[in-house]
């Protein structure tokens, strides 16, 4: 069993769980979105790690014979990065609106205000 070959995946899982932990344990909505971004980037690293070939180069055709890494995960992750920033922008806009409506972005105080209404 070659355990070294799993190091990438384990770090990815660690980063993913760190993002997940921030999302569930921290009360500030902006920090939750940072956690969501950490989670997201860890998934990107997972995909790109899977596309790596031993001794490969970037998948751009060259005259010299070469082994290319798998271009398909690269394409999927390019799409995912841009979609990710779009969703982050929407989340931040929601946070700004919540700040305008409640005067805070802390989850506990938002819940208190809801209870008072």
């Amino acid at each position: 069993m070659n355990w070294v070959g799993l190091y990438n995946y384990w770090i990815v899982i660690f980063l993913m769980m760190t993002g997940f932990y921030i999302v569930v344990s921290q009360g500030n909505l902006v920090k939750k979105l940072v956690g969501l971004n950490l989670f997201q980037t860890s998934v990107f690293i997972q995909y790109i790690s899977m596309g790596k070939m031993p001794g490969g180069t970037a998948p751009i055709e060259s005259s010299a014979p070469a082994v290319y890494s798998n271009p398909l995960p690269h394409v999927l992750i390019l799409t995912a990065i841009v979609v990710g920033v779009a969703t982050t922008a929407l989340g931040l806009a929601l946070a700004v609106r919540i700040k305008q409506a409640y005067g805070t972005v802390e989850e506990d105080r938002i819940r208190e205000e809801d209870r008072n209404v």
């Binding site: 690293i45 790596k52 180069t57 290319y68 690269h74 841009v82």
Partner: peptide, 17 residues
């Protein structure tokens, strides 16, 4: 991403992320 041969992804991540 650059070390993993995904140069396009690295560009996008540096600019967008």
């Amino acid at each position: 991403f650059v070390t993993l041969d995904a140069v396009d992804v690295a560009f996008t991540e540096a600019a967008v992320g």
